[in-house]
């Protein structure tokens, strides 16, 4: 499957946009705050993606990478901050409006319609194109590029393997090349050879002039593709700059402050301090007592119950 990835067909390049000069900012995210109900995931995230640039969005699990992707594509409404697409404010737009404005989002995990056939998935992505001929031509271009999918066109997408589904979701994007692609964890759960395939397609897409925002846990892969990296930690930007310095920033965030500063485990000292801050933060001044109380009680209950 990883064998042939033909070069980007000529009709699949991004149409030049007269209003946007090259090297202009395609995607701009400004002081983004977002969450899910009571869950806060982002605490003021800002960065930009320039025209034709690939930016890697890195960070440990739970740092808020996927939430950034979802806010950018409109799936999650931010509680504060702005998202601009080619200078146009799209904050709070419905996802389909943002998609039509030229931003494609491949969400994490399953991103195809499992009850539809492969071809139906692609037709859906092709949008409301004029004539049947256009659709057929675009489909042919996609099938030429992804030979695997051509053979599976009548199969339901749910019967495809994880790697094939991922290729299908990429093919959906490439069918109508976007101005910006937000790719969320494309390598997740895939065999290395399939990941190679996926990344070759990303390279081709960037070559065609699309800007990329690549959310990734496999840091080296992402950095090989990207020209710039943004590292998130606990919902804030920990690093924004060239790829060269990114690896170090990732290692720092990944390891956490504890590993680099003190190698020993945290003792009771830290415990008390942490807990006290918490109480103080709510205006209470009650000292933390009770840790030492009744240390043996649980044991005695458990044993007595087992005896009975």
């Amino acid at each position: 499957m990883s064998a042939e990835v033909p070069p980007v067909p000529p009709n699949a390049t991004v149409p030049p946009n007269a209003t946007v000069p090259p090297n202009a900012t395609v995607l701009e995210v400004e002081d983004l705050q977002a969450g899910y109900g009571p869950y806060r995931a982002l605490f003021g995230v800002s960065f930009t993606v320039e025209h034709g640039e690939a930016v890697a969005l890195l960070g440990p699990n739970g740092a808020g990478k996927s939430t950034v992707a979802r806010v950018v594509s409109g799936l999650v409404r931010p509680s504060a901050g702005r998202v601009r697409l080619e200078g146009r404010d799209v904050t709070g737009f419905a996802p389909w409006r943002i998609a039509r404005a030229g931003l494609a989002h491949v969400p994490e995990g399953r991103a195809v319609f499992t009850t539809l056939s492969v071809e139906e998935n692609l037709v859906l992505a092709l949008g409301r194109r004029g004539s049947r001929g256009d659709v057929a031509a675009s489909l042919a271009a996609v099938y030429e590029r992804f030979g695997v999918l051509a053979d599976l066109r009548r199969h339901r997408a749910g019967t495809l393997s994880g790697g094939q589904q991922r290729l299908l979701s990429l093919a959906k994007v490439l069918a109508v090349p976007p101005r910006v692609l937000v790719a969320d964890e494309l390598s997740l759960g895939l065999a290395p050879s399939v990941v190679d395939d996926v990344y070759e397609n990303l390279v081709a897409l960037r070559g065609a002039g699309a800007a990329l925002l690549v959310v990734e846990q496999q840091v080296e892969r992402a950095l090989a593709l990207a020209s710039r990296a943004v590292v998130l930690d606990h919902g804030s930007v920990a690093y924004d700059g060239p790829v060269a310095g990114a690896m170090e920033a990732v290692a720092r965030v990944f390891a956490g402050p504890g590993v680099t500063s003190a190698s020993g485990t945290r003792g009771a000292d830290t415990v008390g301090v942490g807990a006290r801050t918490w109480v103080a933060a709510r205006g209470g001044n009650r000292p933390m007592t009770g840790y030492g109380e009744e240390p043996g009680r649980r044991r005695s209950w458990r044993t007595s119950r087992r005896r009975s």
């Binding site: 969450g35 806060r40 995931a41 606990h234 415990v271 008390g272 942490g274 807990a275 801050t277 918490w278």
Partner: peptide, 13 residues
């Protein structure tokens, strides 16, 4: 869903 400070508190408890 917690920030760094809150995480530390839960951890210490």
């Amino acid at each position: 869903g917690l920030d760094e400070r809150e995480t530390r508190e839960v951890a210490s408890v």
